[in-house]
Computed example of a mutant assay.
Amino acid sequence: MWWVVGAVVLAAIFSAYLGWTAQRVERVHARAQSAERALDAHLLRRAAAAAVVAEQSDAIELYAAARLALDAEPDERESAENDLTRQLHGIVLNPADPAARTLIGSSRRVVLARQVHTDLVRDALTARRRKLVRVLRLPGRYPMPRYFDIVEPIMPALPMPVPVPAVPPETPLPVL
């Protein structure tokens, strides 16, 4: 009789482990898909900001690269974004211009979104490589996540605001 109880306990532990593993695989895949959508949104914002800067500065090549990045198909997206990044490296931005500040900020967000996306894709691929996950086909409904390889869009740093020293109030002159 004790072996029946032991078998039931082992089956319960194994099924709990399977449930936890399936939930983990589903969660990392869902997070990887969310990170991919966020990266796509930040790339679109950067391309739109680059188009605005290109229109203001009459940079034809930059405008063409921005339009190609905005209109690119999913399989052409990496090369279009790399072309846009190369064009952005060749321009000089005025940090006082609001459009340039928007472009710099969106480029920094692209870097962060790409790092998050890369980390989550790595986690999802690691979860998929586990033997039990492959045997039971747990990530069945999720497509294989892919890395998004682009050149790092490094933009110039924005100047830090200089604090204005507090000026003591003027003391009134005594009336004589």
Rank of each mutant, 00 (worst) to 15 (best):
42 H>P: 02
42 H>Q: 14
42 H>M: 15
42 H>A: 15
43 L>Q: 09
43 L>A: 02
44 L>W: 06
44 L>N: 12
45 R>V: 08
47 A>H: 01
48 A>L: 10
48 A>C: 05
49 A>Y: 04
50 A>L: 10
50 A>V: 01
50 A>G: 11
51 A>R: 10
52 V>N: 09
52 V>F: 13
53 V>Y: 05
53 V>M: 02
54 A>V: 04
54 A>N: 05
55 E>N: 11
59 A>E: 15
60 I>R: 15
61 E>N: 14
62 L>M: 03
62 L>V: 04
63 Y>G: 11
64 A>C: 07
64 A>R: 15
64 A>L: 14
64 A>V: 14
65 A>K: 03
65 A>N: 03
67 R>W: 09
69 A>G: 02
71 D>N: 11
71 D>Y: 12
73 E>S: 11
74 P>S: 08
74 P>E: 06
76 E>F: 14
76 E>L: 14
78 E>I: 00
79 S>N: 05
79 S>L: 06
80 A>S: 07
80 A>H: 08
82 N>F: 09
83 D>R: 14
85 T>H: 12
87 Q>N: 11
87 Q>I: 07
88 L>P: 02
88 L>G: 06
91 I>V: 14
91 I>L: 06
91 I>H: 09
94 N>Y: 05
95 P>M: 03
96 A>W: 15
97 D>N: 15
97 D>A: 15
98 P>I: 08
99 A>I: 13
100 A>H: 10
101 R>E: 02
101 R>W: 10
101 R>Q: 12
103 L>I: 03
103 L>A: 00
104 I>K: 01
104 I>H: 04
104 I>R: 05
105 G>S: 07
105 G>W: 00
107 S>F: 00
108 R>H: 13
108 R>L: 13
109 R>N: 14
110 V>A: 04
110 V>K: 05
111 V>C: 07
113 A>S: 00
114 R>V: 00
114 R>L: 02
115 Q>K: 00
115 Q>G: 00
115 Q>P: 00
116 V>D: 10
116 V>P: 03
116 V>C: 00
118 T>P: 01
118 T>W: 02
119 D>A: 07
119 D>Y: 05
121 V>P: 01
121 V>A: 02
122 R>I: 03
122 R>M: 04
123 D>A: 09
123 D>M: 09
124 A>G: 12
126 T>P: 01
126 T>F: 13
127 A>R: 05
128 R>T: 07
128 R>C: 03
129 R>I: 03
130 R>I: 08
130 R>H: 12
131 K>T: 09
133 V>T: 07
134 R>E: 09
135 V>H: 02
136 L>P: 02
138 L>Q: 07
138 L>A: 08
138 L>P: 08
140 G>N: 12
140 G>P: 00
141 R>M: 14
141 R>Q: 13
141 R>I: 15
141 R>K: 11
142 Y>C: 01
145 P>R: 03
147 Y>K: 06
147 Y>R: 05
148 F>M: 07
148 F>P: 13
149 D>W: 02
150 I>C: 01
150 I>L: 06
150 I>T: 05
151 V>M: 07
151 V>H: 06
152 E>N: 09
152 E>T: 14
153 P>E: 04
153 P>H: 01
153 P>R: 03
153 P>F: 07
154 I>F: 13
157 A>S: 12
157 A>L: 12
159 P>E: 09
159 P>T: 05
161 P>D: 14
164 V>D: 11
164 V>F: 14
165 P>I: 13
